[in-house]
């Protein structure tokens, strides 16, 4: 599915990267508030869903080549975080849905967690 599909499924608001949503195709995602766990277990994921809202989320995404960050539970990253994402070409969205629901909705729509 494309990131446009992801955005629609979650009813998400795009904070940066709107222009790329139709082109970027994604096949797997991971969800965590612990960046250490993302670093430990993430393998070729294109999307990270998180409720953690600090610059280390962008750093983690950058180091793992994650193309899209989705902040769940209505968490709103500040301008510094959005700017950091912009500079690194990372797409950022925000949804009011909670972590469990967001993951479930995407899973049901065909996005999976990838190999363990």
């Amino acid at each position: 599915m494309t990131l446009r599909d992801v955005q629609k499924v979650l009813g998400a608001r795009v904070l940066t990267g709107e222009e790329s949503l139709d082109q970027v195709v994604v096949s797997s995602a991971c969800g965590s508030d612990m960046m250490s766990d993302v670093l430990a277990f993430s393998k070729d994921h294109s999307i990270l869903l998180t409720g953690l809202c600090n610059p280390q989320v962008i750093r983690t995404a950058e180091l793992l080549d994650i193309v899209c960050l989705i902040f769940v539970r209505g968490k709103k990253p500040d301008e510094t975080i959005i700017q950091m994402a912009k500079e690194r070409g990372i797409i950022v969205m925000e949804t009011g849905h909670r972590m469990f629901s967001s993951c479930g909705m995407l899973y049901q729509a065909g996005l999976h967690g990838g190999a363990i």
Binding site: M34, M35, S36, T50, L52, N54
Partner: peptide, 14 residues
Amino acid sequence: VRNLGFGAGMGLPN
């Protein structure tokens, strides 16, 4: 530190 998303005890093992 945990509130910042680290301190899961995965640093050295990772």
